[in-house]
Design a protein around this nucleic acid. Structure first.
Length: 362
DNA sequence: CCCTCGATCAC
DNA sequence: CCTCATATCGAGGG
């Protein structure tokens, strides 16, 4: 039962959008930033185009560090415009969805898809579909993307990353083992810095190492489930189906405080707009929530949280705010000063389900 | 089984 | 110098 699975990834997405909307940016390093508002240049780089990457500027580094690396270079630092990117994303995902059998969006700029059926299981035809998607995205939105085609999601993801930007990489079943083998384990979806360090301690550095590793050896550090999943992935036998993502089950907002604080009133003053925005999103999406959390990030960047689960789902602002306040006091008593604070609602259900249930119980 | 919390991942 | 948002898992307590 060999499938044809794809991974679709928009190239340096935010920076590319800014660049096509402002032709004067063309050819220059473009750096899209998340400004935290604490000081003039506090914050991190969200996305950098390739001209910037060539000069050592990449996602996640502090804006100040990026500016230092680009000293004496003409470069454009742009604050991110999330809603604009979301509009692009929605149109593009719709386009990709129409040309695939099943789409699983995993981020604003990427998605897995299955085209087993419409390719008839042929990677030749799959490649044509991939090229057609690339053409359409370029024609409709003027954006380039990279696509990977493979027999499963794990390999498709590696393939889309293999040639970037504007790439299309096809890995047919016979090539899977050889394609993956030399790659470092942390290229695998699900293996980040922590797991990578654990792997290194086990003497596992490449995907080939992981593929031939003793499963029982992996179970200690990773747990039975994950160990098997990773081992299978490395062997090219990932069976996870591409499935449509349902609605989000949690919504959150997090902010950086002007200065570290342990005073409820002071923190609340800055958190209130975030709470209001979060609640607005809940209402817009016609959702009910059953749990509320406060998240605190300490000056040392460690994370603490407090959660309150309600008897029954609600959409009340007061439920967010009042519980948020008491959770915040409780959290501060443990942490002392915090650097950032977040609010989250979870256990989301659709309002329609709530009303019909209420009708049913009546 | 439910709830809470921290850890991890990846965007 | 250190953003923001979501999902998932395991542990621990009840």
């Amino acid at each position: 039962m060999t499938r044809v699975v794809g991974h679709f990834d928009l190239d340096y997405f935010y920076a590319q959008v800014e660049q096509i909307e402002d032709p004067t940016l063309r050819g220059l390093p473009v750096i899209v930033c998340v400004y935290s508002g604490r000081t003039e240049d506090s914050g991190v780089v969200s996305t950098a185009n390739y001209a910037a990457r060539d000069l050592g500027v990449k996602s996640g580094i502090p804006i100040t560090v990026a500016k230092n690396r680009l000293k004496g270079v003409e470069a454009k630092f742009i604050p991110m415009h999330r809603e604009k990117y979301e509009a692009y994303s929605e149109r593009i995902m719709l386009l990709v969805r129409e040309r695939t059998d099943m789409l699983e969006q995993t981020g604003i700029d990427e998605a897995f898809f299955d085209i087993t059926s419409r390719s008839g299981g042929s990677f030749e035809r799959a490649k044509e579909i991939g090229l057609e998607i690339k053409r359409q995205v370029l024609q409709q939105e003027r954006l380039t993307c990279s696509i990977g085609l493979a027999p499963n999601m794990i390999v498709a993801k590696l393939a889309s990353d293999y040639q970037k930007p504007d790439g299309l990489t096809v890995v047919v079943p016979e090539q899977v083992k050889g394609f993956m083998a030399p790659m470092p384990v942390d290229k695998l979806y699900g293996i980040g810095s922590k797991s990578s360090a654990l792997m290194r301690e086990l003497g596992v550095t490449t995907i080939a190492d992981l593929a031939k590793a003793d499963l029982t050896l992996l179970e200690g550090p990773f747990g039975r489930r994950l160990a098997l999943q990773l081992h299978d992935a490395a062997n090219g036998t990932d069976e996870q189906p591409v499935v449509e993502r349902g609605e989000a089950t949690q919504l959150s907002r997090i902010i950086t405080l002007k200065k570290d604080s342990r005073v409820v009133e002071e923190i609340l003053e800055q958190l209130t707009p975030a709470i209001e925005d979060l609640h607005k999103r809940v209402i817009e999406k016609r959702l009910f929530f059953r749990s509320i959390s406060i998240i605190g990030i300490l000056p040392n960047l460690s994370v603490r949280s407090r959660t309150k689960t309600l008897e029954k789902p609600t959409a009340e602002m007061s439920a967010v705010r009042d519980n948020g306040i008491s959770l915040l006091s409780s959290l501060l008593a443990e942490t002392g000063e915090i650097r950032r604070v977040g609010i989250k609602v979870a256990d989301l259900t659709e309002a329609s389900e709530q009303s019909s249930l209420a009708d049913f119980l009546r």
